[in-house]
Amino acid sequence: MIWVIHTLNGISFGMLLFLLAAGLSLIYGLMKILNLTHGSYYLIGAYVGSTIIAKTGSFALALIVAPLVVALLGAVMERYFLRRFHLQELPQTLLTFGFLFIFADLMLWIWGGDPIVLPKPAAFSGSISIGDARYPTYRLALIAVGLIVALILWWFQERTRLGAMLRAGVDDAEIAGALGIDVSLLFTLVFAVGALLAALGGVLGGPIIGAQPGADFEVMLLAFVVVIVGGLGSLRGALIGGLLVGLLDNFGKIFFPELALFTIFVPMAIILSFRPTGLFGRL
């Protein structure tokens, strides 16, 4: 029974990683930007969410407002900073690193250094029995939300006009622009949506992993691994990669507590050496 619980833990963490990696992957796919600020979006989402919950007591409100705030932040970063260095990876990476530091310090200033754990929403604060063990319903809800987001993103990308534009942009942004697609708007939109998803992950992850200084680096790194494993620019890759890394991380911490990160990185290195573009990458 304990294995079912560990597996569910891994899957629910994997869903959080999917939320992060989906945005990271789309942003890279379309703009070739390596966004090191992505982990900060996650953490800002969690912190802003915690403040909203503390002030209003509503988890639902936090779940809506915090991601929107972060989406705006992402849009501003794209439009006024990253855009100037289109396709110049070194300046872009440095800019995002600069913002990572700036945000990290500001968050430390505002929310302090102590870990904050967000309260679970009332509807999902209980637990259900699985065999002879109890399992928190919150984690199950998290898995459901992850699947719903995956479904929405898939529908958006495959079935809507905007999604078709996005796919065209990922394939060749220049040609897409020549065909009359407003690539400039698309860039800002995708960046904002990526930031929004990361912040959504922050609020959703708040009750289980909490928010603390340094979490921005940790989740950014895990999201990178997901994207490397799954393949850049691919939503399916982000989902499968997220689940894989979530499970590996969870079981790694149980079996090899001293070398926890190893259980993630060794598979990553193996995948890199056989499929340099990741499992579903097209680059």
Binding site: I33, E89, Q92, L221, L259, A260, L261, F265, M268
Partner: peptide, 21 residues
């Protein structure tokens, strides 16, 4: 390019993870 940046970052973090853990 940026893919190389990401891979070198992830690999370096493995070494960090060993030192840390």
């Amino acid at each position: 390019g940026s893919y190389l940046l990401m891979i070198t970052l992830a690999l370096a973090q493995v070494v960090w993870g060993i030192a840390f853990g």
